[in-house]
Write a protein that binds this DNA or RNA. Structure first.
Lengths: 192, 192
DNA sequence: GGGAGCATGTAACGGGTTACATGATTGG
DNA sequence: CCAATCATGTAACCCGTTACATGCTCCC
């Protein structure tokens, strides 16, 4: 009778952190933070620094990662994390067996549109315009990121996610533009 | 020197709850829960029942809503909430002065794509197909909701948010289809 | 009679945040 | 030399969730 390995029950952020390490790099918490901000943040997550560190400690305590302190830099130590074999097995289990959580979307600006019978619509329009520009910038950054990812075979799937993100944010910009036009037209018609 | 009213610092969910009441209905916590599930959930939020009740209590304690217990139904009491004048002022302040929080997107499936070098891609493709179908259904429900909202003038902006949601989820379905096709093609080519 | 929906509430927990604290290294 | 960046960590807090608990009313 074979001992079946159970998937550990960890929060999504832990899997994201482990996911970063599954690309085989040996990284510090600080590295992971930047990694996350530059790629994962487009479609998931912008975790705080402190949580990354505590998540890493947890992952180590259950044996999914190991760490060693780099001694070269004498005084302030860097702690370097790497995924373990068990970590790889668990990551695979997660990728295969995790049941789909619904997409979490919290779009505060749409909440403001929805509640626009309170308050000044011109400010809302201004906020939407800003959001459109920001979305466009994000889309461009994601596209750029996808180009970079295409150069490294190991980043193939990360690159796919980047492409998806580029599309997502460019469509978000267009959607926002559409909403903007709707509100602006109404405002103009009332003014006329 | 005029006393300027400061915007209260409340969590976003509190504003969402207050927003529901700003449509002038007198509602129970239970009503608000359903309201939220049917419309706000498309672009924001799917809060737990318990939080709605505690949020209502908080809103009452700071004077943004009032409640009275309906006596008609003898035994089990329904508590009916309504927005106050102060609540209206605060809602307006929120709508005007809240600085834009970034959109929160947590797309677990994209996290799985991003980490697809671990694990079986065929399961990922199946999960994506399911997500595409679910997104399509959501889009259709949102569109239906927008049609209903169009009948009532007070729901004008809520209707705009519904239209936006319909577009969002239909585009989400298309985006997912695109990702699906990419992964499927790669799989086929490898198999060939 | 029983199940679905209406209706409210408490308690425990934890995920994740902000703020605070510390200090080394690097480059202008 | 000073600022920015690298780098790690603790403590307090709270938002929001799940689970539990209760009991009504309406309809089949």
């Amino acid at each position: 009778m074979s001992e079946r390995i159970e998937r550990l029950d960890l929060p999504a952020t832990a899997w994201a952190v482990l996911g970063v390490l599954s690309f085989d790099d040996v990284l510090t918490g600080y590295d992971i933070k930047r990694w996350a901000e530059q790629s994962i943040a487009f479609f998931y997550w912008a975790p705080s620094q402190s949580q990354i560190y505590s998540e890493l400690r947890r992952l180590e305590s259950v044996g999914l990662v190991t760490s060693r302190i780099e001694q070269t830099h004498a005084a302030r130590s860097r702690r370097l994390y790497a995924i373990t074999d068990l970590g790889r097995i668990q990551m695979r289990l997660w990728a295969e067996t995790t049941e789909p959580e619904p997409v979490v979307l919290k779009h505060q600006l749409m909440l403001r549109v929805w509640a626009a019978h309170n308050g000044d619509r011109r400010r809302l329009i201004a906020a939407l315009a800003e959001h459109r520009d920001e979305a466009r910038r994000r889309g461009e950054r994601a596209a750029q990121h996808a180009v970079n990812a295409a150069k490294v075979p190991a980043w193939h799937f990360a690159g796919l996610a980047d492409e998806w993100s580029a599309r997502y944010w460019s469509e978000e910009a267009e959607r926002t533009e559409w909403m903007l036009a709707r509100l602006q037209t109404e405002l103009d018609e009332e003014g006329a």
